Computed example of a mutant assay.
Amino acid sequence: MPEGHTVHRLAAALEQAFGGRRVRTSSPQGRFPEAEQLDGSVLLGAEAVGKHLFLALAPAADVPADSPAVRQVHVHLGLYGSWTFAGEPGFADAHAIGAPRLRMGEREEAHGDGGLDWRRLVPRPTVRLRIAGEHGLADLTGPTACEVLDAQGRQAVLDRLGPDPLREDPDGRARRRFVDAVRRSRTTIGALLMNQQVVAGIGNIYRAELLFRARLDPFVPGRELSAGMCEEMWEDLVALMTYGARTGRIVTTQPAHRDIEARIVERSRGTRQNGDEDPSAVPREKSFYVYHRQTLPCRLCGTTVRSADLAGRTVFWCPRCQRVRRRRAGWTREHPATPWALADPAAQVA
């Protein structure tokens, strides 16, 4: 399932591709009949909140954002959803975002950026929603949710979500919501981080890596953590996800650690990230400390990385490095051998 940074990149790509322009909408699959009613609308904007995407469509570009005429297309990609783009050069930064998928046009042995005119690309039978503009198109396949909401429906979705680390938080309110939600709960911190009502946008990779970097045992109850522990976790999460939104990749390792035990235990489909085909990107076997590294030695201490089921998902951790189980006076995230130095998140990637 795409994590929050991916959905923020998706919103930016759709905004770049169609923002302020009139679009054609259709549902080749036939499972989104509302597309016919939205056809010819103007995309006022695209917004990401956690793992949820909202596309604001209106009859004209000058319609106020709070007008009843604005319809919100709400999309949640879930495990199998993805968007693929094709168009003129510079149309969209990404060719595809979401679950592992072919580049649009590959089945015809041609790409939207060369060889085959994107205007002639026939949608696959699985396309739930096609958005087409003057310079390109985007196809949505396999989403968990694709629906039209009014302002009240959109707000109902937002009310179910916790704070999003990638949304602006000038007054620190989001950070305080996160800290309060964790510290008043008896639930394990490993489960809390996957609860979208506690924090929106975290998936299994960020959960595992954040806890390793914080030296936290995944099974410690949230109420046992100090405010300082939670605040440090939030700041680290903001830095990691900001980097992810900028690059499209989750990279949590420091350069000095990447060649130590540079292995990963992949599933049959593999752990995929956007940009895997880029030779300059940090390869996935060097990107994580514990995620999908069960049975392998910890990069820092050599202890075997473990995995277990926690709230229906697999959690990964190092039993030696992650021994913090309760609040301690003067606690700090820094480990004697590995200060994270996150003042500059970009310093994590060489």
Rank of each mutant, 00 (worst) to 15 (best):
R320Q: 15
R207L: 06
T242C: 01
I202M: 15
V238S: 08
P339H: 10
D259F: 04
Y243A: 10
P297A: 13
R269Y: 14
Q29H: 14
L310G: 00
V7E: 06
Q155F: 05
V251C: 07
A145M: 07
P2T: 03
F91M: 08
R167K: 14
D93H: 06
G330R: 13
R175F: 00
M233L: 14
V265Y: 10
W331I: 08
V49C: 04
A281V: 03
R215M: 10
T295S: 15
P33H: 07
Q152W: 09
T84L: 00
F54C: 01
R299Q: 12
Y291T: 00
V23H: 00
V238A: 03
F85P: 02
R128P: 01
P283M: 04
R31T: 07
V42F: 03
T303V: 13
E134K: 06
G40C: 10
F18C: 00
T332A: 13
F212V: 04
V265T: 12
I131Q: 00
I205M: 04
R22H: 01
A110F: 02
E261K: 06
P28Y: 02
R186H: 11
S226M: 05
G20E: 00
R71I: 05
S26G: 09
E224W: 05
R269C: 00
R263W: 12
E47L: 13
D150K: 10
Q29S: 15
A99R: 03
W331Y: 08
F32I: 01
V122S: 11
L342V: 08
V282Q: 04
T295L: 06
L140R: 03
A262I: 03
T304K: 05
R176A: 13
P279S: 12
T25H: 06
Y206S: 08
P218S: 06
R183P: 07
P221Y: 08
A214L: 13
R128W: 08
Q294W: 03
R21T: 09
T144N: 09
L149D: 02
M229N: 05
V157N: 04
L43Y: 02
V182D: 03
E34G: 09
V315A: 12
A346Q: 13
A61M: 02
